[in-house]
């Protein structure tokens, strides 16, 4: 058994080097060489300033902006240094209250909206607390409000939504969606 122990310790050391140092460094090298933008966080830059990451949502609450998913991160929403979901169970009274408050906030500020109900992704918090997307339904739901606060027509805003919206990947995978940060940056650039 003594010989096995020696072999085992040497192998542990060698595999620590191979899988713990060589492998991650090789992946880092390939990533930085061929996918530099993606490997460093898909950062959006405008005028030399970093405006956020394409993949990480930001908090929006002003009526002139589209709002993203509710976020459960602390101490403020969309804290990308500490991802978190709400973990509310379906019968948790606190969850029910939170949903009710969100529905009221949305129906209150989107009074001129004639859609049947609030799209579910707008009143439920995302898994990561950093979800960059909302559904297309959720964007259209907010279009009248945003148009009113920006002095645009609803058609103009809807056109912009369609422009930013992403279809299912390769027409099959995932769900159609709108990137909230990109949509809001595009809105700000309209004027």
């Amino acid at each position: 058994m003594g010989r096995q122990i020696r072999s085992g310790l040497v192998l542990l050391g060698l595999f620590t080097v191979i899988t713990g140092i060589v492998y991650p460094l090789v992946v880092t090298g390939i990533a930085q060489a061929f996918f530099h933008r993606q490997a460093n966080g898909s950062i959006i830059t405008a005028n030399g300033e970093s405006n956020g990451s394409e993949l990480i949502g930001q908090p929006f609450s002003a009526p002139k902006y589209f709002w993203g998913r509710p976020s459960a991160t602390s101490p403020f929403p969309y804290n990308a240094a500490s991802s978190a979901g709400s973990n509310y169970g379906p019968f948790n009274p606190a969850f029910r209250e939170a949903v009710q408050a969100r529905v009221e906030a949305l129906t209150g500020s989107d009074l001129d909206n004639d859609r049947a109900g609030v799209p579910v992704d707008l009143v439920t918090s995302s898994a990561s607390g950093l979800d960059p997307h909302i559904s297309i339904a959720a964007a259209r739901y907010q279009a009248p409000r945003v148009a009113r606060y920006r002095g645009l027509s609803v058609e103009q805003v809807n056109l912009l939504i369609d422009h930013i919206a992403e279809d299912r990947q390769f027409g099959i995978f995932g769900e159609p969606r709108v990137n909230v940060l990109q949509l809001n940056l595009a809105l700000d650039q309209l004027k």
């Binding site: 439920t124 997307h133 559904s135």
Partner: peptide, 24 residues
């Protein structure tokens, strides 16, 4: 108890979206 649209359609996945990501 609230007026929420959870039905799947061309413009949203719908369903139980608490703790889920829109892209999935």
């Amino acid at each position: 108890f609230v007026n929420v649209d959870h039905r799947a359609s061309r413009v949203q996945s719908g369903g139980n979206m608490e703790g889920k990501e829109v892209r999935f």
